Computed example of a mutant assay.
Amino acid sequence: MTSLVAFALASLALVAVPGPNLVHIVTRSVQEGRRAGLVSALGVETGTLLHVLAAVGGLATLVADHPAALAALRYAGAGYLCHLGVRALRHHPSATAPEERPDRQRLLRVYGDAVLVNLLNPKVVLFFLAFLPQFLPTGLPPGQTRARMLVLGLVFLAIALTLDLGYALLGAALTGRLRGTPRRDRRLSRLTGGVHLGLAALVFL
């Protein structure tokens, strides 16, 4: 029980530190409204769940042990962030408020973008491989090791999702101040594009 509490506190501290996932959620929420921010949070944590399952199942270890696979993941992630950045720079905001056009197709794209932003980040693969085993007892059978890793991963997921949803709501609260006129909207689109291009560069650091 003590180790689980320690893990939860460590997870909270790590998730609270701004990173690519958090920045993506906030910028999406500010630019497109509360629903887009909340959907982005769900998408990011769907990616987290897939990372946890990959770590538990051993797939993440295979990727980490093959530099070519890790490099391919890194380039794919950077490329996708560049794609999001260029798309934002080319976006021409309409006068319609973001909450007035929550069409299903747009939200599905928002969700897919968030899943891929997280899933294609090689640093997340390495993070779970290094972080989860620190809170496991030594000498456990493989089956128990995988089961405990899964439990820890789900605890991390719950904490991350809670914080991400909070940041999405915070971003939405800023929408009214940062949007509202065509000039502001264009500036926000340029800022969003620049942020994603910057995140693409950070993938290689």
Rank of each mutant, 00 (worst) to 15 (best):
S3H: 15
A41M: 11
G166T: 06
K123E: 13
A68D: 15
G19C: 10
L70I: 09
L191I: 14
R90W: 08
V125P: 01
H24V: 07
S94C: 10
P93G: 01
A69I: 08
R106P: 04
V23I: 14
R87K: 15
P137L: 04
G47H: 03
R101M: 07
L9C: 11
P102T: 08
H92E: 05
H66V: 14
V195C: 12
G57I: 08
H66D: 15
T145K: 10
A55Q: 10
G57A: 06
L202N: 00
G180K: 05
F7K: 03
A16K: 09
E32Q: 15
L136P: 00
L165W: 03
C82H: 11
V124I: 13
A54C: 13
L107T: 03
L62Y: 07
V63Y: 01
M1T: 11
R101V: 05
A78G: 14
L120R: 03
V52C: 09
R28C: 09
L205C: 01
L14H: 11
L116A: 09
F156I: 05
V117S: 01
I159V: 10
C82L: 15
A69P: 01
V30F: 13
R35G: 06
L154R: 05
R177M: 07
A10S: 14
G85L: 06
V39N: 00
P133I: 14
L14M: 14
V110L: 03
L132N: 01
F156M: 05
R183H: 11
L4P: 00
T48H: 12
T138I: 11
L129C: 02
R184S: 12
D113K: 07
G57L: 07
G193H: 07
L116C: 02
E45I: 07
E99W: 05
S3K: 13
P133L: 13
L84D: 06
G85Y: 10
A130T: 13
H83V: 14
P20N: 04
L70N: 04
G176M: 04
L62K: 13
V17H: 10
V63E: 08
L107I: 04
G33H: 11
D164Y: 03
H196G: 00
R187V: 15
H196K: 06
V86C: 12
M1D: 13
R186A: 12
L163K: 00
T181C: 06
D113N: 09
V124E: 11
L197F: 04
R183K: 11
P20T: 10
I25V: 15
V125F: 13
G37T: 14
V39G: 01
N118H: 12
A114N: 02
A16P: 03
A168D: 01
L53N: 05
R74K: 14
A10F: 15
R190N: 10
R90V: 08
R35C: 09
V63P: 03
L70P: 03
V17D: 10
L169S: 12
R87I: 09
F128R: 02
P133D: 12
R74L: 15
Y80Q: 04
F127H: 01
G37R: 09
D113H: 09
G193V: 06
M149N: 02
A172T: 04
G37V: 14
P93V: 04
D113F: 05
L4E: 08
A55R: 06
V17W: 13
M149W: 07
L170F: 06
